[in-house]
Structures are given as structure tokens and as C-alpha cells.
Design a protein around this nucleic acid. Structure first.
Lengths: 251, 251
DNA sequence: ACAAAAGTGTTCGATTTACACCCATGC
DNA sequence: GCATGGGTGTAAATCGAACACTTTTGT
């Protein structure tokens, strides 16, 4: 990185045109059997009036991770402590010189997972914010459409080999709820008996809640047992999604 | 990202302390049955004399990807065209405010894979450069030790479900060479017959070289058939590494 | 009683693993 | 001939998909 040794001659670091560094967040939740993402309405040009991913500048004395956490708390209205418990991971960095028409802006994108929260409102700035089904989130400001697509794919992939899915669930959840997360994100129905067995056979994925009333009744049907997220971050064995097959040969 | 709408009041983008943006490269190759990484010796403070990952500044009119490709070509001595054919992927961005003692530097890290090249020398700057076994690459400058560790893990993981391994091989290779790549990166021996079947059963992973002399004799032993990389980037089914087991329960 | 959701059991076929064995070449 | 690496075969164990069936609740 950095540093003298490989600076092309004639360049001085201090002389560089300044880069602005920002974070952009793709905050996902599952509600009403659909994957939703948090969007904010832009108030100024460029893209005034358009929807965009929440985000903001990285301050001079904070890391991108810290900036992302700060923004996450602001936009969701959660306390810093509660936000720190959410899943938040760096996606990748977008650095096309043309991505912002005003100046050179490099953006570190993050993906975050939250359980079904009351409403996006709460803290942060006065901007309009809302949960939107990802399917309906098209033509966002800047390159946010691409960021969202990348984030969505990454989340889907990581459901297979990590315990990410529990990040969409409340602290205690039923296996039915967990299965809904998978079905919603992947867009495919899963066999319930097999799903149950696989989850329970994966060490550290979920652990049963012991105690007084370890069951939840969601209206009709037999009350379900409650589970908590386990300590495992990666799943062995993985929970592979059904082959989208048709001999993709792909590239 | 960016932009007016969510700039904390009182801040003006132009007034921000400038960020320098750099790229750092973890360039891997397999030689002598060991995973090697390309290192350069630093000539100036800080960390003068220490080994570091190659890298450099992102220029005002290029993306991080372009900068990484430029650096890759410079450091390996390959032409821009040949370098463009190599596997080069963004890893993640490191942005700890303290990571460079001189000024605020945000670095976008990349991982690159090259076949066993003659020598690191060739083009680029006059800095000392060499291939070092990753096991012996400890205490690098800045946070490069961490970047290297992250890159190494990512490469190992991606061997399972992508055709990445062919990036370590020359244009035409034998299945024995491909297997060596897996064994070297994972550090485990694989069963040859089963490896062969799995690779051949994965559509688009490799394709046989037809033609006059489609075999290579590496000295002793039966000459092996030659293969080229196929078109598939992701492997269906994946080539899972043997369970490191001992009931990791892990986290 | 019936619908709805949770939970258990069982079967069948595909996949994986662990080997034994044959082939072609250099020394 | 023999060591070395390439390539094929196969039986046992394991895993996963599909689906029938029982249990417990609300209406």
C-alpha cells in the first residue's frame, strides 16, 4: 500500500486530488414473505427525488466499519448497542471515477441484516426512509442498483454456508420462521422435514431454548419449539440451495 | 453514499481532511509444492527495510480495479494484456485510521493468482521484489500481515466452489498439476482417483486438449493428458475440502 | 370435525470414500 | 525390472430428496 517506494515519480501524495470516502448500506429484512431493503429519498441534486441506499461520509477519525455502524444505527433508529448486535459485513468497494458526477467519491459498501423492525423511522436525519421490496427497488441513484444487486447475491450465497439467516430472526425463533427466511431469500420452497433435520444436524447453528414456555403459537397450528442462534458462524455441513439446474454450464 | 442528504450539518465535503486511496495486492503462485506470495522490500520510512505487499496509489482518473491491474503488470513484469488474463479480484477495504502513521490512507486490497512465472523481476520500479512462501511471510509492514492472512483464507475457500485453481496453472495443464494446486493451498493430500472423477464430472471446469501431442511427460511416470480451463466460473457441484473435523463447533 | 402448522419415520437413489488394480514411461 | 505417476473399477458407507404419517392447536 501506500508509500514512497512505489509512488510514480513526480507524484506527491499530498498533491493528489482529494478522494471522498463514503459508506453505503444495503440493509435487508424479511417481512411479509418478501425480502425488503431500506431506502432513503434524496433531497438534493444529483438524483434529487430518487431513492438511494442509506450512507454517508467516513469521518476523519473513524474506520469504514465504524462509519457503517453509525449510519446503521441512525437510519434504523436503533441504539448504538443494539445496532452493534446486528450482522454487518463489508461487501466491496466501488470506485469508478464517474460514479458521482460531482467529485471523486470512493464508496465502501456494506450489507446488514435486521429482524423485522417496527419502522425505519426513529433517529437520524429528516430524510424520508422506507422499507421497499427488493424486487421493486429499481433505478436507484448513482450505482446503488448495482450495489444492491451485488449485496443481494452475496446474502443468498452466504445463507448456504454460514449461519447468516439467524440474523433475520428475532432473538428467539421457530424453525418455521428460519425456513421462511431461506425460502424468501432464495425464492424457492424447501421441504420442511428435511430442512428441520439439516438445521438440527448442523452443530452450533441453533440451540433449543429451555425454560418455562419454550413454545410459540402463531395462531393456528401446533405451537412450535423456540430456538436461539448458536455459536457457529460457518455451517458444517452447508445447507445447499436446490440446484437451479438446467445445466447452466455457466460462466 | 455520498451526498448532501445525509451529510452531518456543519460538514462540507470539500472541507474534509483528504483521504489517500491505495491498492494493495496479494499475488499468489504455487511453486515447489508451496504457496508463495509476491513481496517487495520497502525503501523508506515507515517500515524501511521491511517486506510489504506490492501496491500503490489509485490515480485520480482510474478505478481501484484499474489501479490494481496496473500494479499487477508492473510488479510481475507482464504486459498489460497478459496481466489482464490473470485472475484478479477485490478482497476488501482496510480503513483503520491508524493503519498508516503518516496520513489517512484507505486501501482496497486485491488477490491475484498467477502461474509459476520465471521471476518477479521485469518491469516496474527498481524496488527489490521476490516470491516468498506464505508460511515465512510474517511481520510485514503496515497491516499487510492481516491482509495476507485474509487473502489466503479467501483463496482457500474459493477453491471449493469456483474454478479459481486453474488460475494457478499454465494454459495447458495436467490433472496432476491441478491436484497439486489444491493440495498445496489446502495443505491436505487428496485421493487421486476421486479427485480426477470429481473434476471431470463438474461441467465446464476443465476441457480436454485435442490435437497432436495432447500429453505431457514430466520425467518419470506415464505421460498425462492435457486440459484447458473450462468456461465455468462456479463449480456445480463444489469440490469440498476434507473436513478438518475434530468437531469444531467453532465460531 | 376440519384446517393448519409442527414434528417423526421410512424409502430409494445418488454421491462420497476408500481402496485395489492396470498402464506407460524413465532409469 | 522397478520406481513413479497416470488412469480405471468397485463395494460399502453416507447423504439427501421425496413423501407418508402422527401430533397439537384454533375455529
Amino acid at each position: 500500500m501506500v508509500t514512497g517506494i512505489d509512488i510514480p515519480e513526480g507524484y506527491d501524495p499530498k498533491a493528489f486530488a482529494p478522494f471522498a470516502v463514503t459508506v453505503d448500506l444495503a440493509v435487508f429484512t424479511v417481512r411479509q414473505a418478501a425480502l425488503h431493503v431500506l431506502l432513503v429519498r434524496r433531497g438534493q441534486a444529483p438524483f434529487a427525488g430518487a431513492w438511494a441506499l442509506p450512507g454517508g461520509f467516513v469521518l476523519p477519525d473513524e474506520s469504514a466499519e465504524r462509519a457503517a455502524l453509525r449510519e446503521l444505527a441512525e437510519e434504523t433508529g436503533l441504539s448504538r448497542e443494539r445496532a452493534a448486535g446486528l450482522h454487518l459485513e463489508q461487501l466491496r468497494t466501488y470506485s469508478d471515477p464517474e460514479r458521482d458526477p460531482r467529485m471523486r467519491v470512493v464508496s465502501v459498501a456494506f450489507a446488514a441484516l435486521v429482524p423485522d423492525l417496527p419502522e425505519p423511522r426513529g433517529g437520524g436525519d429528516a430524510a424520508e426512509a422506507q422499507w421497499a421490496p427488493v424486487a421493486s427497488a429499481v433505478s436507484l441513484a448513482f450505482d446503488h442498483g448495482r450495489i444492491l444487486a451485488d449485496a443481494r447475491r452475496r446474502i443468498g450465497d452466504k445463507l448456504e454456508y454460514t449461519s447468516l439467516a439467524t440474523g433475520f430472526c428475532p432473538p428467539e425463533f421457530t424453525l418455521g420462521e428460519l425456513q421462511q427466511v431461506y425460502e424468501t431469500v432464495w425464492g424457492v420452497p424447501l421441504d420442511r422435514p428435511n430442512f428441520r433435520r439439516k438445521v438440527l444436524a448442523t452443530p452450533g447453528f441453533v440451540e433449543p431454548v429451555g425454560g418455562a414456555a419454550p413454545r410459540r403459537t402463531g395462531g393456528r397450528g401446533k405451537p412450535a419449539a423456540l430456538y436461539r442462534a448458536g455459536r457457529a458462524a460457518v455451517l458444517h455441513p452447508p445447507l445447499l440451495r436446490p440446484a437451479a439446474d438446467s445445466s447452466e454450464g455457466g460462466c
